[in-house]
Design a protein around this nucleic acid. Structure first.
Lengths: 199, 199
DNA sequence: TTTCGCCTATATCGGTTCGATATATACCGG
DNA sequence: CCGGTATATATCGAACCGATATAGGCGAAA
């Protein structure tokens, strides 16, 4: 799922300028579903207009810079429906926290504890921010999605608080020279061989 | 968190070729923490070697192409420790499924139901695949991380199965012309104004 | 037996995206 | 009057993705 798809999805809910789209991403429900920068948005809009998916008009406003406001064409709305009707692709997910936990053996207990504290703090802050919004939005799809996110974040916080001691016990059990295999999946002989056959 | 960081993390667990790194991503625990392609890995390795974070040696193998095997230098191990010791950044997350749910009003009930079915199917398949591995790996950090993921996926499946009717009820309540505001966050006046002040 | 597909392995190319920065105007507070 | 913030568009280099090229060895099917 690329920037173009999300632009279509936002524009399907109303016309918007490039600046509006960025605001949606930073402050609205799309924030948690993937970021976007001006460096992506403006070229994407230009491409989509060239492809006939959107049209634009200049809007002069008193006291503010002029806006270029985009809206979907019929072709664009159809493209939007097509992309939303396709079977959902697996999520793209990249987690610094996850990598830190995988490398627990190489960290000090304090460092690891600080990472876990920070993660719990982040998730709790997000839960506090979103809980009242879920209530306000409960009669719209966005409310459903926020509840989905809240359920997941609550599970994560509970999991960490219950199991953190088990992870912290790994801290400091590896150093620069050690070659520990990360895992031992049945389909990954290369990893095992490599860590046992080293030298 | 960029490709370089994950390469450092994998290499901290043992030397590897570019091909090995790709295998780790496709089949190992890093798979769920962010993908990488050859088009990223090889340039990243070249950059890291130039920066003195890794060193390499040619390994000739009978019956197979020669491998270029990379390992961390002391500088590289320190860079790895530094990046793992930093406070965890928020996850990068992009979800086609999430966007589909947000656009529920524009979809038919059947299309939406199919998306929900597919999501549940995907998550259940992943749970089935990972559950036995969690048992095998329970004495390593990767086991902890897999349990973390399993807890989250189980929550998601339960949430969807319990609440799907509420989302499906939104299906078909919007069409091409409608300008429905997506949400009504206190910090997002532009969205409300735009959808009510259209025309 | 030879041909086809698969595995190992590295490399590159075009296009997309990110993050930072540039530019310009307007408004408000100190 | 100056600096900070908000609105608004645009661009640049670096990073990254997905596909493709290349090439030898392997085993199985035709």
């Amino acid at each position: 799922m690329n920037i173009r798809t999300i632009c279509l999805a936002i524009l399907a809910h109303g016309e918007a300028s490039g600046y509006d789209l960025k605001k949606h991403w930073e402050e609205g429900p799309f924030h948690h579903l993937g970021g976007a920068s001006f460096g992506s948005i403006y070229p994407a809009l230009a491409r989509m207009e060239k492809d006939g998916l959107i049209r634009s008009r200049e809007e002069v406003q008193p006291g503010k810079p002029a806006r270029r406001v985009y809206s979907l064409t019929e072709t664009g709305y159809q493209a939007f429906i097509d992309e939303m009707s396709a079977l959902p692709e697996p999520d793209d997910f990249r987690s610094h926290f996850g990598v830190i936990t995988l490398c627990a053996r190489h960290l000090t207990r304090d460092t690891l504890a600080r990472a876990l504290d920070e993660r719990v703090r982040q998730q709790k802050a997000e839960i506090s921010k979103l809980t009242p919004i879920a209530e306000i939005e409960k009669d719209r799809p966005v409310g459903w999605l926020i509840e989905w996110g809240l359920a997941i974040m609550a599970t994560e916080v509970a999991f960490i608080e219950k199991n953190r001691a088990r992870l912290e016990a790994f801290a400091g059990t590896a150093g620069p020279g050690d070659e520990l295999s990360i895992c031992c999946l049945p389909d990954m002989p290369a990893v095992k061989q490599q860590s046992t056959a080293a030298e």
